[in-house]
């Protein structure tokens, strides 16, 4: 039965295309159409006699306050991406060398927090970092003066790293486990020491994993507005918060969409930069 099904799938291209149908419908309804809507809103302004084409929503970014928010967002998300990378790589390497299967307990440990809602976890961190929170209560037992942990840029970076770290570990781990042990053995055989093997073989081969990890950490960090409100006490305004205000307080969907488009451009630029590195590395290899 199974064999027959398999054969049928191989022979009938139409059938195979049909299988992609649900996803295509999904993609059009929830990705393509919303994107077109954002572009539509972003390039128009509301006037008394209907909508009019305009670039003014995009140029809103030049406003010093919005620029500052964008700059700060870029800075904080870059820092958290780098921290994630530094933390995740050794962990992924360790997981590979231990030769643990994808169903192992260790992988579970990293996945487990993701079973809980992201918002709940962030609010929990608020309670831990607060002045009267867990950390400061512990410190006061030892007679140490309370630390000012919450409502700082540091707390926001911390929240980003905590929330997005699994998205860095998993892609790197996935690439690392797929490296054939024979490749590494060959390198050792040809006289490379452990460090050289790592630099010349493992690292270049893991670049694709790092790239997707960087993307999956950098993009949500750049656009977040929840982490900065909860752990930053709304004292630190990121570009995500500016966009949120446009939609929620001002009800100005056009300006909000315009700024979102600008943000998308910045994301595309960063992705392009990262992928240039990718190609260079491959050539070098």
């Amino acid at each position: 039965m199974r064999e027959r099904f398999k054969r049928k799938m191989q022979t009938s291209g139409v059938f195979r295309q049909l299988l992609a149908g649900p996803y295509i419908v999904w993609m059009v309804a929830f990705i393509v159409i919303p994107l077109l809507l954002i572009a539509y809103y972003g390039f128009t302004v509301k006037t008394d006699d209907g909508l009019r084409f305009s670039l003014s929503n995009l140029t809103l970014i030049a406003n010093p306050i919005n620029l500052k928010a964008l700059g700060l967002s870029l800075e904080l998300s870059l820092i958290s991406t780098i921290i994630c990378l530094i933390l995740a790589y050794p962990i992924a390497l360790m997981l590979r060398n231990r030769n643990v299967g994808s169903d192992s307990f260790v992988i579970m440990i990293f996945m487990l927090p993701m079973w809980m809602n992201f918002l709940l976890r962030t609010i929990a961190w608020q309670n831990i970092l607060e002045k009267t929170g867990v950390i400061n209560s512990l410190l006061s037992v030892f007679g140490i003066k309370p630390l000012n942990l919450i409502n700082t840029s540091g707390a926001i970076v911390f929240g980003m790293v905590y929330n997005f770290l699994p998205f860095m570990i998993l892609p790197i781990y996935n690439v690392l486990v797929k490296i054939d042990q024979n490749v590494i053995n060959a390198a050792r055989d040809l006289g490379a020491n452990a460090f050289q093997t790592f630099i010349k073989v493992i690292l270049p081969l893991s670049v694709p994993g790092m790239i997707s990890g960087i993307t999956m950490v950098f993009v949500p960090s750049l656009t977040t507005f929840v982490i900065s409100s909860i752990l930053g006490g709304s004292k630190i305004v990121l570009i995500g918060n500016v966009i949120e205000q446009q939609f929620k307080f001002l009800g100005n969907w056009n300006a909000g969409s315009g700024l979102s488009l600008v943000l998308m451009i910045f994301i595309l630029i960063s992705m392009a930069l990262v992928s240039i590195y990718d190609k260079d590395d491959v050539k070098g290899f």
């Binding site: 002045k131 919450i150 409502n151 006490g233 709304s234 004292k235």
Partner: peptide
């Protein structure tokens, strides 16, 4: 007032 504020909530 901003520097005096602990958090906006």
């Amino acid at each position: 007032q901003n520097p005096l504020v602990q958090a906006y909530v």
